[in-house]
Protein backbone atom coordinates (compact mmCIF):
# COMPACT_ATOMS: atom_id res chain seq x y z
CA UNK A 1 0.00 0.00 0.00
CA UNK A 2 1.54 3.29 -1.08
CA UNK A 3 1.06 6.41 0.96
CA UNK A 4 0.56 9.86 -0.48
CA UNK A 5 0.66 13.21 1.27
CA UNK A 6 -2.15 14.20 3.59
CA UNK A 7 -4.63 16.27 1.61
CA UNK A 8 -7.05 18.57 3.40
CA UNK A 9 -9.28 20.48 1.02
CA UNK A 10 -6.86 21.81 -1.58
CA UNK A 11 -3.90 21.77 0.79
CA UNK A 12 -1.30 19.02 0.57
CA UNK A 13 0.85 18.46 3.64
CA UNK A 14 4.26 16.83 3.68
CA UNK A 15 3.85 15.75 7.30
CA UNK A 16 0.96 14.14 9.15
CA UNK A 17 1.95 15.91 12.35
CA UNK A 18 0.36 19.33 12.86
CA UNK A 19 1.71 21.35 15.77
CA UNK A 20 0.66 24.36 17.76
CA UNK A 21 2.91 27.37 18.24
CA UNK A 22 1.88 28.38 21.77
CA UNK A 23 3.40 27.88 25.22
CA UNK A 24 7.07 27.71 24.21
CA UNK A 25 9.75 29.35 26.35
CA UNK A 26 10.86 31.72 23.61
CA UNK A 27 11.07 32.19 19.88
CA UNK A 28 14.27 30.14 19.56
CA UNK A 29 12.72 27.15 21.24
CA UNK A 30 9.60 27.48 19.11
CA UNK A 31 11.65 27.48 15.92
CA UNK A 32 13.78 24.51 16.96
CA UNK A 33 10.79 22.46 18.07
CA UNK A 34 8.84 23.17 14.89
CA UNK A 35 11.82 22.20 12.80
CA UNK A 36 12.37 18.97 14.76
CA UNK A 37 8.70 18.07 14.40
CA UNK A 38 8.97 18.10 10.61
CA UNK A 39 5.51 19.67 10.47
CA UNK A 40 4.43 21.68 7.48
CA UNK A 41 1.23 23.08 8.99
CA UNK A 42 1.12 24.91 12.32
CA UNK A 43 -1.72 26.47 14.26
CA UNK A 44 -1.85 30.13 15.25
CA UNK A 45 -4.34 32.19 17.24
CA UNK A 46 -6.03 35.50 16.42
CA UNK A 47 -5.63 38.07 19.17
CA UNK A 48 -6.04 41.79 19.72
CA UNK A 49 -2.97 43.79 18.83
CA UNK A 50 -1.22 44.97 21.96
CA UNK A 51 -1.50 48.74 21.52
CA UNK A 52 1.49 49.32 23.78
CA UNK A 53 3.88 46.90 22.03
CA UNK A 54 4.13 48.12 18.45
CA UNK A 55 4.92 45.95 15.50
CA UNK A 56 3.86 42.47 14.48
CA UNK A 57 4.63 39.21 16.19
CA UNK A 58 8.09 38.11 15.05
CA UNK A 59 7.04 34.46 15.20
CA UNK A 60 4.45 34.93 12.47
CA UNK A 61 6.95 36.55 10.12
CA UNK A 62 9.27 33.62 10.69
CA UNK A 63 6.54 31.07 10.00
CA UNK A 64 5.58 32.79 6.76
CA UNK A 65 9.20 33.08 5.63
CA UNK A 66 9.77 29.38 6.27
CA UNK A 67 6.72 28.48 4.20
CA UNK A 68 4.64 26.90 6.95
CA UNK A 69 0.95 26.59 6.18
CA UNK A 70 -0.83 28.58 8.89
CA UNK A 71 -3.94 27.09 10.43
CA UNK A 72 -5.66 29.86 12.41
CA UNK A 73 -7.78 28.63 15.30
CA UNK A 74 -10.73 30.06 17.19
CA UNK A 75 -9.32 29.14 20.59
CA UNK A 76 -11.05 30.94 23.41
CA UNK A 77 -14.38 31.27 21.57
CA UNK A 78 -17.44 30.12 23.47
CA UNK A 79 -20.15 30.95 20.96
CA UNK A 80 -20.92 30.80 17.24
CA UNK A 81 -20.64 34.56 16.63
CA UNK A 82 -17.18 34.88 18.14
CA UNK A 83 -15.91 31.82 16.27
CA UNK A 84 -17.26 33.06 12.94
CA UNK A 85 -15.91 36.59 13.49
CA UNK A 86 -12.51 35.18 14.41
CA UNK A 87 -12.41 33.09 11.22
CA UNK A 88 -13.32 36.08 9.08
CA UNK A 89 -10.53 38.09 10.69
CA UNK A 90 -8.15 35.17 10.15
CA UNK A 91 -9.01 35.07 6.46
CA UNK A 92 -8.41 38.81 6.22
CA UNK A 93 -5.03 38.28 7.93
CA UNK A 94 -3.95 35.22 6.06
CA UNK A 95 -5.70 35.45 2.70
CA UNK A 96 -6.46 31.73 3.03
CA UNK A 97 -9.71 30.15 4.10
CA UNK A 98 -8.17 27.40 6.20
CA UNK A 99 -9.51 27.49 9.78
CA UNK A 100 -9.51 25.29 12.85
CA UNK A 101 -12.92 25.87 14.37
CA UNK A 102 -13.28 25.30 18.07
CA UNK A 103 -16.27 26.47 20.05
CA UNK A 104 -15.67 25.64 23.67
CA UNK A 105 -18.39 24.68 26.07
CA UNK A 106 -16.72 24.92 29.43
CA UNK A 107 -13.48 26.41 30.71
CA UNK A 108 -12.63 23.56 33.06
CA UNK A 109 -12.71 20.75 30.49
CA UNK A 110 -12.37 22.86 27.35
CA UNK A 111 -14.66 20.30 25.76
CA UNK A 112 -16.22 21.51 22.55
CA UNK A 113 -19.85 22.65 22.46
CA UNK A 114 -20.82 20.42 19.55
CA UNK A 115 -24.16 22.12 18.86
CA UNK A 116 -22.48 25.49 18.40
CA UNK A 117 -19.53 23.90 16.59
CA UNK A 118 -21.93 22.43 14.02
CA UNK A 119 -23.66 25.79 13.59
CA UNK A 120 -20.39 27.70 13.20
CA UNK A 121 -19.07 25.09 10.75
CA UNK A 122 -22.23 25.37 8.65
CA UNK A 123 -21.92 29.17 8.37
CA UNK A 124 -18.20 29.01 7.58
CA UNK A 125 -18.51 26.29 4.95
CA UNK A 126 -21.24 28.40 3.29
CA UNK A 127 -18.82 31.33 3.27
CA UNK A 128 -16.23 29.23 1.47
CA UNK A 129 -13.89 28.45 4.34
CA UNK A 130 -11.93 25.19 4.51
CA UNK A 131 -13.18 24.11 7.92
CA UNK A 132 -11.32 21.78 10.29
CA UNK A 133 -13.50 21.45 13.38
CA UNK A 134 -12.28 20.39 16.80
CA UNK A 135 -14.92 18.04 18.15
CA UNK A 136 -15.62 15.33 20.67
CA UNK A 137 -14.94 11.66 19.94
CA UNK A 138 -18.63 11.18 19.11
CA UNK A 139 -18.99 9.45 15.72
CA UNK A 140 -22.47 10.91 15.10
CA UNK A 141 -21.22 14.48 15.44
CA UNK A 142 -18.20 13.65 13.29
CA UNK A 143 -20.50 12.38 10.56
CA UNK A 144 -22.65 15.50 10.77
CA UNK A 145 -19.57 17.70 10.43
CA UNK A 146 -18.56 15.78 7.33
CA UNK A 147 -22.07 16.08 5.89
CA UNK A 148 -22.00 19.86 6.42
CA UNK A 149 -18.90 20.02 4.23
CA UNK A 150 -15.98 20.18 6.65
CA UNK A 151 -12.65 19.37 5.00
CA UNK A 152 -11.54 17.21 7.93
CA UNK A 153 -12.81 16.21 11.35
CA UNK A 154 -10.64 16.60 14.45
CA UNK A 155 -11.86 14.58 17.42
CA UNK A 156 -10.12 15.00 20.74
CA UNK A 157 -8.12 12.17 22.28
CA UNK A 158 -8.66 13.70 25.73
CA UNK A 159 -9.12 17.25 27.12
CA UNK A 160 -6.79 19.91 25.72
CA UNK A 161 -3.46 19.91 27.53
CA UNK A 162 -4.41 16.92 29.70
CA UNK A 163 -1.86 14.49 28.27
CA UNK A 164 -4.22 11.60 29.00
CA UNK A 165 -3.82 9.99 25.58
CA UNK A 166 -6.59 8.34 23.60
CA UNK A 167 -9.31 7.74 26.14
CA UNK A 168 -11.72 6.09 23.70
CA UNK A 169 -9.81 4.37 20.91
CA UNK A 170 -12.93 2.48 19.84
CA UNK A 171 -14.79 5.70 19.09
CA UNK A 172 -11.83 7.02 17.13
CA UNK A 173 -11.83 3.80 15.12
CA UNK A 174 -15.56 4.09 14.48
CA UNK A 175 -15.13 7.70 13.35
CA UNK A 176 -12.36 6.60 11.00
CA UNK A 177 -14.63 3.96 9.50
CA UNK A 178 -17.70 6.17 9.33
CA UNK A 179 -16.38 9.17 7.46
CA UNK A 180 -14.25 9.70 4.38
CA UNK A 181 -12.64 13.12 4.96
CA UNK A 182 -9.35 13.10 6.91
CA UNK A 183 -9.58 12.37 10.63
CA UNK A 184 -7.04 14.21 12.75
CA UNK A 185 -6.74 13.50 16.44
CA UNK A 186 -6.56 16.89 18.10
CA UNK A 187 -5.79 17.45 21.78
CA UNK A 188 -5.00 15.21 24.71
CA UNK A 189 -1.86 13.52 23.41
CA UNK A 190 0.71 13.12 26.20
CA UNK A 191 3.61 11.23 24.73
CA UNK A 192 4.88 9.51 21.60
CA UNK A 193 2.96 6.26 22.04
CA UNK A 194 -0.32 8.24 22.08
CA UNK A 195 0.52 9.75 18.71
CA UNK A 196 1.53 6.36 17.32
CA UNK A 197 -1.72 4.85 18.59
CA UNK A 198 -3.77 7.51 16.85
CA UNK A 199 -2.04 6.71 13.58
CA UNK A 200 -2.32 2.94 14.12
CA UNK A 201 -6.07 3.41 14.50
CA UNK A 202 -6.07 4.76 10.96
CA UNK A 203 -6.19 8.48 11.65
CA UNK A 204 -4.76 10.68 8.93
CA UNK A 205 -2.87 12.99 11.24
CA UNK A 206 -2.34 14.23 14.77
CA UNK A 207 -2.44 17.80 16.07
CA UNK A 208 -0.74 18.72 19.32
CA UNK A 209 0.83 21.61 21.20
CA UNK A 210 1.19 21.06 24.95
CA UNK A 211 2.67 17.56 24.64
CA UNK A 212 5.65 19.10 22.89
CA UNK A 213 5.83 22.60 24.38
CA UNK A 214 5.29 21.32 27.93
CA UNK A 215 7.88 18.52 27.82
CA UNK A 216 11.11 18.96 29.76
CA UNK A 217 12.93 18.98 26.43
CA UNK A 218 10.46 20.24 23.83
CA UNK A 219 12.81 19.87 20.86
CA UNK A 220 13.52 16.23 21.70
CA UNK A 221 9.81 15.55 22.21
CA UNK A 222 9.05 17.17 18.87
CA UNK A 223 11.40 14.70 17.23
CA UNK A 224 9.84 11.82 19.19
CA UNK A 225 6.40 12.87 17.94
CA UNK A 226 7.62 13.04 14.36
CA UNK A 227 8.98 9.49 14.61
CA UNK A 228 5.87 8.24 16.41
CA UNK A 229 3.51 9.62 13.78
CA UNK A 230 5.61 8.08 11.02
CA UNK A 231 5.90 4.75 12.85
CA UNK A 232 2.19 4.63 13.60
CA UNK A 233 1.30 5.42 10.01
CA UNK A 234 3.63 2.73 8.68
CA UNK A 235 2.24 0.18 11.13
CA UNK A 236 -1.30 1.04 10.07
CA UNK A 237 -0.45 0.66 6.39
CA UNK A 238 1.49 -2.54 7.06
CA UNK A 239 -1.55 -4.11 8.70
CA UNK A 240 -1.07 -5.45 12.18
CA UNK A 241 -1.55 -9.09 13.18
CA UNK A 242 -4.76 -9.94 14.96
CA UNK A 243 -4.71 -10.12 18.73
CA UNK A 244 -4.85 -13.72 19.98
CA UNK A 245 -5.29 -15.03 23.46
CA UNK A 246 -2.76 -17.85 23.07
CA UNK A 247 0.73 -18.15 21.65
CA UNK A 248 1.71 -19.10 18.11
CA UNK A 249 5.30 -20.33 17.87
CA UNK A 250 7.70 -18.38 15.70
CA UNK A 251 10.25 -21.22 15.19
CA UNK A 252 9.58 -24.50 13.30
CA UNK A 253 7.84 -27.13 15.39
CA UNK A 254 9.64 -29.98 13.62
CA UNK A 255 13.15 -31.16 14.35
CA UNK A 256 13.17 -30.13 17.95
CA UNK A 257 15.71 -32.23 19.87
CA UNK A 258 14.89 -33.83 23.18
CA UNK A 259 11.46 -34.78 24.32
CA UNK A 260 8.58 -33.01 26.02
CA UNK A 261 8.37 -35.62 28.76
Amino acid sequence: MTDGPLKIGDVELGSRLIVGTGKYKDLDQTRSALEASGSSMVTVAVRRLDLEAKGGDSLIGYLKDKGYTLLPNTAGCYNVDDAVRTCRLARELGMSGLVKVEVLGDDKTLFPDVVQTLEAARILVDEGFTVLPYTTDDPITAKKLEDIGCAAVMPLAAPIGSGLGIRNPYNIEIIREAISVPVIVDAGVGTASDAAEAMELGCDGVLMNTAIAGADEPVRMARAMKLAVEAGREAYLAGRIPRRLYATASSPLQGVIGSRQ
Binding site: G20, T21, G22, K23, Y24, T30, T43, V44, A45, V46, R47, R48, L49, L51, G56, D57, L59, I60, L70, P72, N73, A75, R88, L89, A90, E92, L93, G94, I160, M208, N209, T210, A213
Partner: peptide, 28 residues
Protein backbone atom coordinates in the same frame (compact mmCIF):
# COMPACT_ATOMS: atom_id res chain seq x y z
CA UNK B 1 -17.77 44.08 10.30
CA UNK B 2 -14.41 43.49 8.61
CA UNK B 3 -12.89 46.41 6.77
CA UNK B 4 -10.91 44.81 3.93
CA UNK B 5 -7.33 45.99 3.62
CA UNK B 6 -8.05 47.65 0.26
CA UNK B 7 -10.66 49.86 1.91
CA UNK B 8 -8.59 51.05 4.87
CA UNK B 9 -7.77 54.32 3.13
CA UNK B 10 -11.32 55.08 2.08
CA UNK B 11 -13.23 54.04 5.19
CA UNK B 12 -13.90 57.05 7.41
CA UNK B 13 -14.52 56.44 11.07
CA UNK B 14 -17.38 57.95 13.04
CA UNK B 15 -17.80 59.05 16.63
CA UNK B 16 -18.43 56.07 18.89
CA UNK B 17 -17.13 53.43 16.46
CA UNK B 18 -15.91 50.24 18.04
CA UNK B 19 -12.83 48.78 16.38
CA UNK B 20 -10.93 45.56 16.74
CA UNK B 21 -7.37 45.44 15.44
CA UNK B 22 -6.03 41.90 15.52
CA UNK B 23 -3.00 39.89 14.49
CA UNK B 24 -1.84 36.28 14.49
CA UNK B 25 0.04 35.09 17.56
CA UNK B 26 1.43 31.71 18.61
CA UNK B 27 -1.28 29.32 19.74
CA UNK B 28 -2.38 25.72 19.80
Amino acid sequence: IIVPRAQHGSTELAEGDSLEVVQFVGGG
